[in-house]
Write a protein that binds this DNA or RNA. Structure first.
Length: 502
RNA sequence: GCACAGAUAGCAAAGCCCGGUUACGCGAUGGACUGCAAAUCCAUUUCACAGGGGUUCGAAUCCCCUUCUGUGCUCCA
């Protein structure tokens, strides 16, 4: 099955075909950096990161552009509040963006253009729209006339122009626009505002025009994917369609409009006003970034996701399983190297129908990977793909511990398992940590934090062992509680006492 | 009001486009292991698809109607 992608404009999933063979031009609306990144941003950019990764894994070369709206009312307000330059506010929050997205293992886009860097392109596009009579100059700036291209109204949201025409248009009065549906291409500066010179006076761009100008600059008149949050469909993306298509005369400007679902908390949209708002950094105080990533990949990108504690706890457990399998295979590989076992795997041919233990298991793993690929090809169904990876992650340790295969086969299989995990859980889903971290998860003795308290813990455990031998359960449990206070969990397994550090 | 989504077993969430097959997971229950826990493993929980009509040999899946929920229509990922 070849990749199929859902397009918001045509409201159908269709075979993914790009304008240029082997290349994907992908533009995703970036943030307005007036405050630190929140979980909604994390969800959006993880979703498009997954899309980015899968396209590349499928053999396309992706040209990924994501903008920063570094001049805007909210940034200006923030700068005024703090008495600093607007660029300081923008830069600070852009730094925060990079920092948290890096920690969430979001690969960088190829370009991050900023509005303040494309002012000339915006001006020339605006001039062109005025010339074509799709836009007009007013006292307070330049406006796009929606009625100049009524057939483009509502193409993403299904709203009819008549319905909106009937709505109240009260705000027309306090601005230079002729019709309440019109939107600003250029806003003349009010006193004290940052501004750039233009043929219509000093001012700054309207919100929507930047994306049209940037995509035109980087990709030309038509491109493959335009992504962003569900909320951006209207008016932002519809405005872009007006601007770009009226300016170039080419339709459609975008082959596939892709919109990610929102993050909800307890069934409601996460928002500052509802008080259920999380910045990424807040969440990272509680959860490992890769766990958060896994939680957010646990829903299809177009569905809303309810970020509950249960979801996060589930993700934590599943993620641990994957990392554990990875660490296990890595440790066995290390041991095999030390034992002088040659890295010359002679694994049997994968075959689910085989009665040979290893051939059969390899067949199962191959099948899981194929199923994961099918899921991804079906409009990036990460939830489905994740369940395949989870199944594999559960299977791998069983094979590594199996007594049906000898040491040499185990070592050979460990190398295979590492590849298996890195190919999909790592490269595509972006869920694998660094190797040494994974090994420390499997073999806690490799964890430096554990080393630091090792002696103290062992001492207490020795005392507990004595108490247990004397059936002095009270003292034994006291010691266990004391260890628990140190963050140490004691497990009495059939193979002896094992302890883990939170 | 208009528009767009959605409603699936105790919870959570795929499947719906391309009607006929098991989701995956959590939880629960039983068992193994335990002094007790925790953790782990095994087994069971395998005919649920908002309601009502219709099409069909057969519908969660297609069509119509109804109800409810969320979101957008102003800045928003």
């Amino acid at each position: 099955m070849a990749l199929h992608v859902y397009d918001t404009r045509t409201r159908e999933k269709r075979l993914f075909e790009t304008a240029r063979t082997g290349e994907v031009d992908m533009y995703v609306c970036g943030i307005t950096p007036y405050s630190p990144s929140h979980l909604g941003h994390a969800r959006c950019y993880i979703a498009f990161d997954l899309i980015h990764r899968w396209l590349e894994a499928s053999g396309w070369t992706v040209n990924y552009v994501q903008n920063f709206t570094d001049i805007d009312d909210k940034i200006i307000n923030k700068a005024n509040e703090e008495g600093i330059d607007f660029l300081e506010v923008a830069n600070r929050n852009i730094d925060d963006y990079y920092e948290v997205m890096d920690s969430l293992n979001v690969l960088r886009a190829d370009h991050y253009p900023r509005v303040t860097e494309v002012i000339p392109e915006i001006i020339s596009m605006t001039e062109s729209l005025i010339e074509k009579e799709n836009a007009y100059v007013a006292e307070d700036g330049v406006w796009f006339s929606v009625e100049s291209a009524p057939e483009k109204y509502g193409v993403l949201t299904g709203q009819s122009i008549d319905a909106v025409r009937a709505g109240a248009g009260g705000r027309v009065e306090d601005s230079g626009k002729r019709d309440h549906k019109d939107f600003a291409l250029w806003k003349n500066a009010k006193p004290g505002e940052p501004s750039w010179p233009s043929p219509w006076g000093d001012g700054r761009p309207g919100w929507h025009i930047e994306c049209s100008a940037m995509s035109l600059k980087h990709f030309g008149e038509q491109f493959d994917i335009h992504g962003g949050g569900h909320d951006l469909r209207f008016p932002h993306h519809e405005a872009e369609i007006f601007q770009s298509e009226c300016c170039t005369g080419k339709e459609p400007v975008v082959r596939y409009w892709m919109h990610n679902g929102f993050v909800n908390v307890d069934g409601e949209k996460m928002s500052k006003s509802l008080g259920n708002f999380w910045t990424v950094k807040d969440a990272l105080k509680i959860y490992d970034p890769l766990v958060l990533r896994q939680a957010l990949l646990n829903a299809h990108y177009r569905s809303p996701i309810d970020l509950s504690e249960q979801l996060l706890e589930d993700a934590k457990g599943h993620h641990a399983k994957i990392v554990h399998a990875y660490g296990h295979a890595l440790v066995i590989t290390e041991q095999a190297k030390k034992a002088g076992l040659r890295d010359a795997p002679r694994l049997p041919t994968a075959d689910v129908t085989s009665t040979d233990f290893l051939a059969n298991k390899l067949g199962l793993l191959e099948k899981l990977l194929q199923e994961a690929a099918v899921a991804m090809d079906d409009d990036f169904n990460s939830r489905q793909a994740l369940s395949k990876v989870s199944n594999g992650a559960r299977l791998i340790p069983k094979i590594l511990e199996s007594e049906d295969i000898d040491e040499r086969d185990t070592a050979a299989f460990a190398l295979y398992a590492i590849d298996w995990l890195e190919e999909f859980a790592g490269s595509v889903l972006g869920l694998l940590p660094e190797k040494d971290i994974a090994m420390a998860v499997y073999d806690p003795n490799l964890d430096p934090a554990r080393q630091a308290i090792k002696d103290d813990v062992e001492q207490l455990l020795a005392r507990r062992a004595i108490a247990r031998a004397a059936k002095d359960w009270e003292s034994a449990d006291e010691i266990r509680d004391a260890l628990s206070d140190m963050g140490v969990t004691v497990k009495d397994t059939p193979d002896g006492v094992v302890w883990t550090l939170d």
